[in-house]
Design a protein around this nucleic acid. Structure first.
Lengths: 188, 188
DNA sequence: TGGCTAAAAGCAAATAATTTGCGTTAGCGA
DNA sequence: TCGCTAACGCAAATTATTTGCTTTTAGCCA
């Protein structure tokens, strides 16, 4: 299956998408967000505005698509010796990236549109990363929370704070992890 | 202090705000969201579009303001006999309301704008409700989680799932509550 | 009470964004 | 190589947004 978001590579459609995404990323870093308009993006990407309108619908949906693709992790979680410390390092980085101005904005962009596909994509990216850490723990016979527990009690509180409240501190993230680790390992 | 969002009651400014909010609420329940435009809202509210543009900026900000005001709870959490069951009833209702199409949309509207004031308002509404339940538990000497624990391990996971994943089921919400209750009372 | 003032609303012209119909092109499969 | 179709370009028509200026209104003080 070749979806609109992942066109056959090399084709014209793919080139247009790449040019538009690239133009958006450039413009988001370097000018006031309110000045980013579809006609401007089109100009930078060397396409006509109507191409963008027909393909993405409106600015929000385009921004959501770009944000989702930027939220995809490029590397797997760093190895630090134990699954526990892997988790801690991963969570701290996750919180940092998502709390930054750019990160918050990308999340908001993803959530702003009514199409839930992009948001679900982000969620599954996170789960993929965590699954890797869980698998490492299993390999080494390390007692570890389940994926669901990690999503509910580490990822969710971090994300809630970023979206609705104050950005989470490093200590806060550590506290969440201590809370969710199996009893025997509850102390850092 | 009389802010733009809470003008002196009875004045012209307040009448305009009420008319516009009312028009928005009406239009959101009864027509396709994509057809809700500022010129149309202005017409229904009997004001000129420029009034809305000057006061709210754009459609997203207006929708965010309306959504935040609709997310304010009207009543305090129902009394069901114990703080534990109060919490359960409250959480189930919260999850239901927020998972509904209208609820999800209101949350998205609130999060879509870069001004975080509305999102923080929603968070504080939730905290106010939970504080009442925590206070009831204290009055009766019932062992109970702290407000922070409730926000982190009940509210956050529910909200994360609504925004990024599948809507939470009733059993899921009950599970969260069991997990967060003090050990002695962990069994329902 | 009766003006005075500043904030907010109305109006309309100018600008900018969005939609749409139609012709063109590039890439894919036969 | 030769269509065929999906996607793009172009431009006109529509619609939304901005803006300068005028008018109204509520609050305030003499």
């Amino acid at each position: 299956m070749v979806s609109k978001e992942n066109p056959r590579p090399g084709g014209r459609s793919a080139r247009v998408q790449a040019a538009v995404h690239h133009a958006v990323r450039e413009m988001l870093t370097g000018m006031d967000r309110a000045d980013v308009t579809i006609p401007l993006i089109a100009q930078r990407a060397n396409v006509t505005p109507s191409t963008i309108y027909r393909r993405w619908g409106d600015l929000q949906e385009l921004l959501a698509a770009v944000a989702a693709s930027r939220l995809q992790p490029e590397t797997e979680p760093q190895r630090t010796g134990s699954a526990r410390t892997d988790l801690q390092a991963w969570a701290e980085q996750y919180a940092d990236e998502m709390s930054s101005g750019a990160g918050r904005q990308m999340i908001r962009d993803v959530l702003a549109v009514s199409d839930t596909a992009n948001a679900e994509k982000c969620c599954s990216y996170t789960q993929q990363q965590l699954r890797l850490i869980v698998a490492r723990a299993e390999e080494q016979g390390e007692a570890f929370p389940t994926l669901t527990e990690l999503m509910d009690f580490v990822v969710s509180p971090i994300m809630y704070r970023i979206l609705f409240d104050q950005v989470p501190s490093r200590d806060y993230v550590r506290g969440l992890i201590s809370r969710v680790m199996p009893e025997g390992a509850a102390k850092s």
